[in-house]
Structures are given as C-alpha cells and as structure tokens.
C-alpha cells in the first residue's frame, strides 16, 4: 500500500506532464523530420530550418514581434511600476476603484478586448498597424506589471524606507538606494512577463494587424489557415525554446524575488 502510494504521486504528475508536453515534443520532432506529411520513420533533416531562413514573410513578422515586445516591455514596465508605487505607497479615497479598473484587461476575453479596440481605433482614425498593436499589448501588460511589482513592494517592509528616511536620506536617496534595489527583481520579472505576453499575443494582434503587416503569431495563424508548411514547426520550435529559456530565467528571478 505504502509502496503503491510512493509510486502513485510521481506517476500521476508524470502522466499530466506527458499530456502537457506531447504536442510540444511532437512539434519539435517534426521540425527535424524530413517528411512533409509527418510520415514516420523519422529521418533527421534541417531542411525546414533552411527553408525558414528564406521565408521573408515569417522573418519580417518575427522582427515585428520582437520590436513590439521590446517597446511594450519598456512602456508597460515604466507605467506599471509607477502605478504600483502610487497604489501601494499612497492611501486615497476611491483607491479600491482604481484597483478595480485594472481588472477588465485581465479578465475580459481577449476576443472582446480585441474587437472593441479594432472598432474604436478604426472609428477614431487611430487605425490599425504596429502602433495599434502596441497600444493593445501595453494595455494588456500593465495590469500584470502592477500586480507583480506590487507583490514585491508588499514583500518588503515599509519600515525599510522609514529607516532610510530617519537616517537622513532624502526622498530621492530613499528611492534609489533602498526602494529601487529591493524592487529590482520584481521589475525584471515583470519585464520578462510583459515581453513574453506580447511576443505570444495572438488575438489582439490579429484584430489590429492590417493586411500586409503582421506579427509572428498572426503570420503563423494565417499559414495554418492557408494550409500549413513545416517551416512553422521549425520557427515554433525556436519560439518554444526561446520562451522556455525566458521562463526559466523568470522562475529563477521570482524565486529570488520571493525571498524577503
């Protein structure tokens, strides 16, 4: 009985992980497989990666995605961190409402957020394009940044800042020498999160991308819809490896950030 239980726990979790990883592993295998129709046996070939190097549409979309993700990260982290500071260091009437206002972009289906933005941007002349996609990504990222940075702010005691002040530090010195260094792991974690969120974001970009301009997920979607080429497997493999690399860094940092 005891032996059974000892096997059961890792066994069950192992099965869940198998379910989670099956499609990812299949995709990676297919990225290196020669057959276009996923036929087995497996024959190792890098031809899809070579083809990828000549697929200008995909590469341009990838470049767009990276640029948007970087600008999104800079903007959302700056705005989100300032908001987190305002919300946790000030007490004012109606604060609960301001916190509540962060929730819609977290909890509404992206389909609704995306179509509403598309309609509004079109109507007002903001239009569609990379700038519109950026507007949308930042709106989605800010609440996450606020929550990550705020939880970090909560984790370190307010008395650290008070201690700095009473030791003679000005508001500026307190921020740069105490608050900012302690906040840094949270800010880096938020930045990684914002980057990944933007880089993977499909729904919002899909509605805000005009014909001829696209981001990587939008380009992949249209390739899938058109009839697929295995180059998608190749680039997806690269994305997954890249995203997972980011995630591992993120996990390291948030673990570090968790320590008081």
């Amino acid at each position: 009985m005891k032996a059974l239980r000892a096997v059961f726990a890792p066994g069950y979790v192992g099965l869940v992980l198998l379910f989670l990883y099956t499609p990812i592993i299949v995709m990676m295998i297919m990225a290196f497989n020669q057959s276009e129709l996923y036929q087995l046996p497996f024959v190792f070939d890098l031809k899809w990666f070579r083809a990828l190097a000549h697929n200008d549409d995909l590469l341009e979309a990838a470049a767009n995605s990276i640029i948007i993700a970087i600008v999104n990260t800079l903007l959302s982290v700056t705005l989100g961190t300032l908001t987190a500071l305002a919300l946790s260091r000030h007490h004012f009437r109606g604060k609960a409402w301001f916190e509540l206002l962060l929730l819609p972009s977290l909890t509404m289906p992206w389909l609704i957020t995306g179509t509403a933005m598309m309609l509004f941007f079109f109507w007002t002349g903001i239009g569609r394009g990379l700038h519109a996609i950026l507007l949308g990504h930042v709106a989605l990222s800010i609440p996450y940044v606020v929550f990550i940075v705020r939880s970090r702010l909560k984790a370190f005691n307010r008395s650290l800042e008070e201690a700095a002040q009473i030791l003679g530090a000005s508001a500026w010195q307190t921020f740069w020498r105490v608050t900012a260094p302690l906040l840094a792991p949270g800010i880096v974690a938020a930045a990684l999160f914002a980057f990944a969120l933007s880089f993977d974001q499909f729904v919002i970009s899909y509605f805000l991308a005009p014909i001829g301009i696209s981001t990587l997920p939008v380009e992949i979607y249209s390739a899938i819809r058109k009839g697929f080429t295995p180059e998608i497997n190749a680039i997806s493999t690269l994305i997954i490896l890249f995203s997972m690399g980011l995630m591992i860094v993120f996990a390291r940092l948030s673990k570090f950030a968790g320590e008081p």
Binding site: F156, N157, S159, E162, A163, I166, P181
Partner: peptide, 12 residues
C-alpha cells in the same frame, strides 16, 4: 536615530 521592531535592516 530609530530602531524598528523588525530591525528594518536593508537586506541588499
């Protein structure tokens, strides 16, 4: 000068 209940030493 002030000593805080939880010491408030700067951890970094």
């Amino acid at each position: 000068g002030m000593m805080f209940q939880n010491y408030a030493l700067f951890p970094h």
